[in-house]
Protein backbone atom coordinates (compact mmCIF):
# COMPACT_ATOMS: atom_id res chain seq x y z
CA UNK A 1 0.00 0.00 0.00
CA UNK A 2 1.06 3.58 -0.54
CA UNK A 3 2.12 5.49 2.48
CA UNK A 4 -0.20 7.84 4.32
CA UNK A 5 -0.52 10.09 7.31
CA UNK A 6 -2.19 8.71 10.35
CA UNK A 7 -4.30 10.55 12.85
CA UNK A 8 -6.01 9.29 15.95
CA UNK A 9 -8.62 11.94 16.72
CA UNK A 10 -9.57 12.62 20.32
CA UNK A 11 -13.31 12.65 19.68
CA UNK A 12 -15.99 12.01 17.11
CA UNK A 13 -16.32 15.61 16.19
CA UNK A 14 -12.70 15.96 15.24
CA UNK A 15 -12.96 12.70 13.37
CA UNK A 16 -15.74 13.83 11.04
CA UNK A 17 -14.08 17.19 10.72
CA UNK A 18 -10.88 15.55 9.54
CA UNK A 19 -12.80 13.42 7.06
CA UNK A 20 -13.89 16.53 5.19
CA UNK A 21 -10.43 16.89 3.74
CA UNK A 22 -9.81 15.34 0.37
CA UNK A 23 -7.99 12.06 0.28
CA UNK A 24 -8.93 11.17 3.83
CA UNK A 25 -10.48 7.85 4.83
CA UNK A 26 -11.60 6.55 8.15
CA UNK A 27 -10.32 3.23 9.43
CA UNK A 28 -11.90 1.11 12.14
CA UNK A 29 -11.51 -2.66 11.88
CA UNK A 30 -9.47 -2.19 8.73
CA UNK A 31 -10.51 -5.56 7.34
CA UNK A 32 -12.10 -4.04 4.25
CA UNK A 33 -10.00 -0.93 3.75
CA UNK A 34 -6.51 -2.35 4.14
CA UNK A 35 -6.85 -5.04 1.47
CA UNK A 36 -8.11 -2.35 -0.89
CA UNK A 37 -5.12 -0.21 -0.01
CA UNK A 38 -2.72 -3.10 -0.40
CA UNK A 39 -3.96 -3.84 -3.89
CA UNK A 40 -3.78 -0.07 -4.47
CA UNK A 41 -7.44 0.17 -5.35
CA UNK A 42 -7.54 3.00 -2.88
CA UNK A 43 -4.63 5.11 -1.78
CA UNK A 44 -5.84 7.63 0.77
CA UNK A 45 -3.40 10.35 1.70
CA UNK A 46 -4.52 10.22 5.29
CA UNK A 47 -6.22 7.75 7.60
CA UNK A 48 -8.35 8.77 10.53
CA UNK A 49 -8.29 6.05 13.11
CA UNK A 50 -11.67 5.59 14.73
CA UNK A 51 -10.68 2.68 16.93
CA UNK A 52 -9.79 4.90 19.86
CA UNK A 53 -13.23 6.53 19.96
CA UNK A 54 -14.52 4.73 23.01
CA UNK A 55 -17.77 6.69 22.71
CA UNK A 56 -18.67 4.48 19.73
CA UNK A 57 -18.08 1.21 21.53
CA UNK A 58 -21.20 0.19 23.39
CA UNK A 59 -24.16 -2.07 23.27
CA UNK A 60 -27.26 -0.88 25.05
CA UNK A 61 -30.70 -2.30 25.34
CA UNK A 62 -33.86 -1.05 26.88
CA UNK A 63 -37.50 -1.92 26.60
CA UNK A 64 -38.46 1.34 24.91
CA UNK A 65 -35.72 1.85 22.38
CA UNK A 66 -34.60 -1.69 21.75
CA UNK A 67 -30.93 -2.07 20.90
CA UNK A 68 -28.49 0.73 20.40
CA UNK A 69 -25.21 -0.59 19.10
CA UNK A 70 -22.18 1.66 18.85
CA UNK A 71 -20.58 1.54 15.41
CA UNK A 72 -17.31 0.17 16.73
CA UNK A 73 -18.93 -2.90 18.25
CA UNK A 74 -17.22 -5.88 16.69
CA UNK A 75 -18.96 -8.73 14.95
CA UNK A 76 -17.59 -11.06 17.62
CA UNK A 77 -19.19 -8.95 20.34
CA UNK A 78 -22.50 -9.10 18.52
CA UNK A 79 -22.22 -12.81 17.94
CA UNK A 80 -21.59 -13.56 21.59
CA UNK A 81 -23.77 -10.94 23.27
CA UNK A 82 -26.30 -12.72 25.47
CA UNK A 83 -29.05 -10.13 25.03
CA UNK A 84 -28.72 -10.20 21.27
CA UNK A 85 -28.76 -13.97 21.26
CA UNK A 86 -31.89 -13.94 23.34
CA UNK A 87 -33.88 -11.08 21.84
CA UNK A 88 -32.72 -10.84 18.25
CA UNK A 89 -30.95 -14.12 17.53
CA UNK A 90 -31.13 -13.51 13.80
CA UNK A 91 -28.42 -10.88 14.21
CA UNK A 92 -26.18 -13.15 16.23
CA UNK A 93 -26.69 -15.85 13.60
CA UNK A 94 -25.78 -13.51 10.78
CA UNK A 95 -22.68 -12.32 12.63
CA UNK A 96 -21.62 -15.86 13.44
CA UNK A 97 -21.55 -16.95 9.79
CA UNK A 98 -19.73 -13.86 8.56
CA UNK A 99 -16.06 -14.12 7.65
CA UNK A 100 -13.80 -15.87 10.17
CA UNK A 101 -13.31 -15.67 13.94
CA UNK A 102 -10.31 -13.36 13.59
CA UNK A 103 -12.12 -11.08 11.16
CA UNK A 104 -15.09 -11.00 13.51
CA UNK A 105 -12.76 -9.90 16.30
CA UNK A 106 -11.56 -7.06 14.10
CA UNK A 107 -14.48 -6.00 11.93
CA UNK A 108 -17.07 -3.60 13.28
CA UNK A 109 -20.78 -3.35 12.66
CA UNK A 110 -20.34 0.11 11.18
CA UNK A 111 -17.67 -1.10 8.80
CA UNK A 112 -19.68 -4.15 7.89
CA UNK A 113 -22.54 -2.00 6.64
CA UNK A 114 -20.19 0.24 4.69
CA UNK A 115 -18.04 -2.47 3.11
CA UNK A 116 -17.21 -2.50 -0.57
CA UNK A 117 -18.51 -5.16 -2.90
CA UNK A 118 -16.47 -8.33 -3.53
CA UNK A 119 -16.99 -8.40 -7.30
CA UNK A 120 -13.78 -9.73 -8.79
CA UNK A 121 -13.72 -7.14 -11.52
CA UNK A 122 -14.04 -4.42 -8.91
CA UNK A 123 -11.28 -5.99 -6.81
CA UNK A 124 -8.86 -6.43 -9.70
CA UNK A 125 -6.84 -3.28 -10.27
CA UNK A 126 -6.57 -4.25 -13.96
CA UNK A 127 -10.22 -3.47 -14.62
CA UNK A 128 -11.45 0.09 -14.42
CA UNK A 129 -15.04 -0.93 -14.01
CA UNK A 130 -18.08 1.29 -13.81
CA UNK A 131 -18.17 1.22 -10.04
CA UNK A 132 -14.60 2.52 -9.96
CA UNK A 133 -15.46 5.38 -12.27
CA UNK A 134 -15.09 3.60 -15.60
CA UNK A 135 -17.83 3.07 -18.12
CA UNK A 136 -18.22 -0.71 -18.32
CA UNK A 137 -19.49 -3.36 -16.00
CA UNK A 138 -17.23 -6.22 -17.04
CA UNK A 139 -19.22 -8.78 -15.13
CA UNK A 140 -22.42 -8.35 -17.10
CA UNK A 141 -20.82 -9.94 -20.16
CA UNK A 142 -18.05 -11.68 -18.26
CA UNK A 143 -17.81 -14.20 -15.43
CA UNK A 144 -20.90 -13.55 -13.40
CA UNK A 145 -21.62 -16.65 -11.38
CA UNK A 146 -21.60 -14.69 -8.15
CA UNK A 147 -23.37 -11.62 -9.44
CA UNK A 148 -26.76 -9.99 -9.19
CA UNK A 149 -30.00 -11.39 -10.50
CA UNK A 150 -31.89 -8.24 -9.63
CA UNK A 151 -31.05 -4.66 -10.57
CA UNK A 152 -27.93 -5.85 -12.34
CA UNK A 153 -27.34 -2.68 -14.30
CA UNK A 154 -25.27 -0.47 -14.36
CA UNK A 155 -23.32 -2.56 -11.81
CA UNK A 156 -24.11 -6.20 -11.12
CA UNK A 157 -22.03 -6.66 -7.99
CA UNK A 158 -23.96 -7.98 -5.02
CA UNK A 159 -23.99 -6.58 -1.55
CA UNK A 160 -21.77 -8.85 0.51
CA UNK A 161 -22.86 -8.11 4.07
CA UNK A 162 -24.40 -10.80 6.24
CA UNK A 163 -25.43 -8.33 8.91
CA UNK A 164 -27.25 -5.98 6.56
CA UNK A 165 -30.08 -8.35 5.54
CA UNK A 166 -30.54 -9.42 9.16
CA UNK A 167 -30.63 -5.84 10.39
CA UNK A 168 -33.00 -4.81 7.64
CA UNK A 169 -35.29 -7.67 8.56
CA UNK A 170 -35.21 -6.33 12.10
CA UNK A 171 -36.23 -2.89 10.86
CA UNK A 172 -32.95 -1.36 11.96
CA UNK A 173 -31.75 2.16 11.38
CA UNK A 174 -28.35 3.78 11.44
CA UNK A 175 -27.38 7.01 13.04
CA UNK A 176 -25.12 9.06 10.83
CA UNK A 177 -22.91 11.85 12.02
CA UNK A 178 -21.39 14.31 9.59
CA UNK A 179 -19.68 17.65 9.82
CA UNK A 180 -22.82 19.65 9.39
CA UNK A 181 -25.61 17.23 9.92
CA UNK A 182 -26.56 14.21 11.84
CA UNK A 183 -29.59 12.04 11.85
CA UNK A 184 -31.09 8.60 11.72
CA UNK A 185 -32.14 6.76 8.59
CA UNK A 186 -33.64 3.34 8.08
CA UNK A 187 -31.45 0.78 6.32
CA UNK A 188 -33.85 0.88 3.39
CA UNK A 189 -32.92 4.52 2.99
CA UNK A 190 -29.26 3.98 3.82
CA UNK A 191 -28.62 1.47 1.04
CA UNK A 192 -29.12 2.83 -2.43
CA UNK A 193 -28.58 1.42 -5.86
CA UNK A 194 -25.44 2.92 -7.32
CA UNK A 195 -25.88 5.58 -9.95
CA UNK A 196 -23.55 7.63 -12.08
CA UNK A 197 -23.54 10.48 -9.58
CA UNK A 198 -23.03 8.21 -6.56
CA UNK A 199 -21.01 5.11 -7.42
CA UNK A 200 -21.45 3.36 -4.12
CA UNK A 201 -24.14 1.36 -2.39
CA UNK A 202 -24.93 3.76 0.46
CA UNK A 203 -25.88 7.39 0.96
CA UNK A 204 -22.94 7.94 3.26
CA UNK A 205 -20.94 11.04 2.38
CA UNK A 206 -17.16 11.13 2.51
CA UNK A 207 -17.23 13.12 5.73
CA UNK A 208 -19.95 11.13 7.42
CA UNK A 209 -19.79 8.14 9.71
CA UNK A 210 -22.22 5.60 10.95
CA UNK A 211 -22.06 6.10 14.67
CA UNK A 212 -24.84 3.84 15.88
CA UNK A 213 -27.05 1.02 14.71
CA UNK A 214 -30.51 0.99 16.22
CA UNK A 215 -32.74 -2.05 16.35
CA UNK A 216 -36.26 -1.23 17.47
CA UNK A 217 -38.14 -3.29 20.03
CA UNK A 218 -39.79 -6.21 18.39
CA UNK A 219 -43.47 -6.68 18.49
CA UNK A 220 -44.48 -9.19 21.17
CA UNK A 221 -44.02 -12.67 19.79
CA UNK A 222 -41.38 -12.45 17.09
CA UNK A 223 -38.86 -14.80 15.64
CA UNK A 224 -36.26 -14.63 12.95
CA UNK A 225 -33.83 -16.70 10.99
CA UNK A 226 -30.82 -16.07 8.80
CA UNK A 227 -29.90 -18.67 6.19
CA UNK A 228 -26.79 -18.43 4.09
CA UNK A 229 -25.79 -20.63 1.18
CA UNK A 230 -22.09 -20.77 0.50
CA UNK A 231 -19.87 -22.72 -1.85
CA UNK A 232 -17.75 -23.83 1.05
CA UNK A 233 -18.87 -24.52 4.56
CA UNK A 234 -17.55 -21.36 6.15
CA UNK A 235 -15.59 -18.18 5.46
CA UNK A 236 -17.19 -17.37 2.16
CA UNK A 237 -19.49 -14.65 1.06
CA UNK A 238 -23.07 -15.73 0.52
CA UNK A 239 -24.10 -17.15 -2.81
CA UNK A 240 -27.51 -16.16 -1.58
CA UNK A 241 -28.71 -15.43 1.91
CA UNK A 242 -32.07 -14.71 3.38
CA UNK A 243 -33.12 -12.99 6.56
CA UNK A 244 -36.69 -13.37 7.74
CA UNK A 245 -38.20 -11.82 10.83
CA UNK A 246 -41.80 -12.65 11.60
CA UNK A 247 -44.11 -11.34 14.27
CA UNK A 248 -46.73 -13.82 15.28
CA UNK A 249 -50.21 -13.93 16.51
CA UNK A 250 -50.15 -17.52 17.74
CA UNK A 251 -49.43 -19.45 14.55
CA UNK A 252 -50.49 -16.68 12.24
CA UNK A 253 -48.13 -14.16 10.79
CA UNK A 254 -48.91 -10.64 11.92
CA UNK A 255 -46.15 -9.19 9.86
CA UNK A 256 -42.97 -10.29 8.23
CA UNK A 257 -39.84 -8.71 6.86
CA UNK A 258 -38.00 -10.74 4.27
CA UNK A 259 -34.63 -9.61 2.97
CA UNK A 260 -32.31 -11.31 0.50
CA UNK A 261 -28.56 -11.00 0.36
CA UNK A 262 -26.28 -11.85 -2.54
CA UNK A 263 -28.89 -11.16 -5.20
CA UNK A 264 -28.69 -7.41 -5.81
CA UNK A 265 -26.26 -4.53 -5.33
CA UNK A 266 -28.01 -3.78 -2.06
CA UNK A 267 -29.74 -5.94 0.55
CA UNK A 268 -32.99 -6.77 -1.16
CA UNK A 269 -36.19 -6.50 0.77
CA UNK A 270 -39.14 -8.25 -0.86
CA UNK A 271 -42.43 -6.60 0.16
CA UNK A 272 -44.42 -8.73 -2.29
CA UNK A 273 -43.40 -11.87 -0.44
CA UNK A 274 -44.04 -10.25 2.92
CA UNK A 275 -47.52 -9.38 1.73
CA UNK A 276 -48.29 -13.00 0.85
CA UNK A 277 -47.52 -14.32 4.30
CA UNK A 278 -49.20 -11.51 6.21
CA UNK A 279 -52.18 -12.72 8.24
CA UNK A 280 -51.56 -16.28 7.17
CA UNK A 281 -50.59 -19.45 8.90
CA UNK A 282 -47.58 -20.55 6.92
CA UNK A 283 -48.15 -23.68 4.90
CA UNK A 284 -45.89 -25.15 2.32
CA UNK A 285 -48.10 -23.61 -0.33
CA UNK A 286 -47.91 -20.13 1.17
CA UNK A 287 -44.17 -20.42 1.66
CA UNK A 288 -43.78 -21.50 -1.94
CA UNK A 289 -45.79 -18.64 -3.31
CA UNK A 290 -43.93 -16.20 -1.07
CA UNK A 291 -40.67 -17.55 -2.45
CA UNK A 292 -41.96 -17.12 -5.99
CA UNK A 293 -42.99 -13.56 -5.23
CA UNK A 294 -39.63 -12.83 -3.64
CA UNK A 295 -37.86 -13.53 -6.92
CA UNK A 296 -40.39 -11.81 -9.12
CA UNK A 297 -38.53 -9.88 -11.76
CA UNK A 298 -35.23 -11.65 -11.26
CA UNK A 299 -33.19 -11.75 -14.47
CA UNK A 300 -30.30 -14.14 -14.52
CA UNK A 301 -27.04 -13.39 -16.27
CA UNK A 302 -25.25 -16.14 -18.16
CA UNK A 303 -23.83 -17.98 -15.14
CA UNK A 304 -26.03 -17.13 -12.18
CA UNK A 305 -29.42 -18.58 -13.06
CA UNK A 306 -29.01 -21.03 -10.19
CA UNK A 307 -29.39 -18.18 -7.73
CA UNK A 308 -33.08 -17.90 -8.48
CA UNK A 309 -33.74 -21.49 -7.49
CA UNK A 310 -31.42 -21.15 -4.54
CA UNK A 311 -33.02 -17.95 -3.27
CA UNK A 312 -36.50 -19.40 -3.61
CA UNK A 313 -35.41 -22.47 -1.70
CA UNK A 314 -33.96 -20.41 1.11
CA UNK A 315 -37.01 -18.16 1.43
CA UNK A 316 -39.28 -21.15 1.57
CA UNK A 317 -37.06 -22.98 4.00
CA UNK A 318 -36.76 -19.95 6.27
CA UNK A 319 -40.50 -19.50 6.41
CA UNK A 320 -41.18 -23.18 6.98
CA UNK A 321 -38.58 -23.37 9.73
CA UNK A 322 -40.04 -20.37 11.53
CA UNK A 323 -43.55 -21.79 11.18
CA UNK A 324 -42.38 -25.09 12.63
CA UNK A 325 -40.86 -23.30 15.57
CA UNK A 326 -43.97 -21.21 16.08
CA UNK A 327 -45.99 -24.37 16.50
CA UNK A 328 -43.84 -25.56 19.34
Amino acid sequence: MRNFEHITPPDLESAVDLLSERGTKSIAGGTDLLPEMKSRLRSPRRLVNLKALEELRYLKHNARKGFQIGALTTLAEIESNELIREKIPILAQAASVAASPQLRNMGTIGGNLCQSVRCWYYRAPEFKCWLKGGDTCYAIEGENKFHAILESSPCCAVHPSDLAPALMALGASVHITGTDEEGTVSLEEFFVRPKASNRQMTILGANELITEVQVPMLDGDSSGIYLKAMDRKVWAFALVSVAVQVSWDKERVKGARIVLGGVAPIPWRVPAAEEIVRDQAITEEIATSASEAALEGAQPLRDNGYKIALAKALVKRALMTLAERAKK
Binding site: N3, F4, E5, H6, I7, T8, P9, P10, D11, E13, S14, D17, L18, R46, I176, T177, G178, T179, D180, E181, E182, G183, V185
Partner: peptide, 18 residues
Protein backbone atom coordinates in the same frame (compact mmCIF):
# COMPACT_ATOMS: atom_id res chain seq x y z
CA UNK B 1 -31.24 15.23 9.08
CA UNK B 2 -30.77 17.64 11.92
CA UNK B 3 -27.96 20.17 12.15
CA UNK B 4 -25.28 19.30 14.61
CA UNK B 5 -23.85 22.05 16.69
CA UNK B 6 -20.31 22.50 15.65
CA UNK B 7 -17.67 23.06 18.26
CA UNK B 8 -14.05 23.95 17.83
CA UNK B 9 -11.92 21.12 16.67
CA UNK B 10 -9.59 19.67 19.24
CA UNK B 11 -5.95 19.64 18.26
CA UNK B 12 -4.79 16.44 16.65
CA UNK B 13 -1.40 14.92 16.01
CA UNK B 14 -0.56 13.91 12.49
CA UNK B 15 1.86 10.99 12.35
CA UNK B 16 3.79 9.91 9.29
CA UNK B 17 3.97 9.56 6.40
CA UNK B 18 7.65 9.14 7.16
Amino acid sequence: MAKATKTKRASVTVRGPH
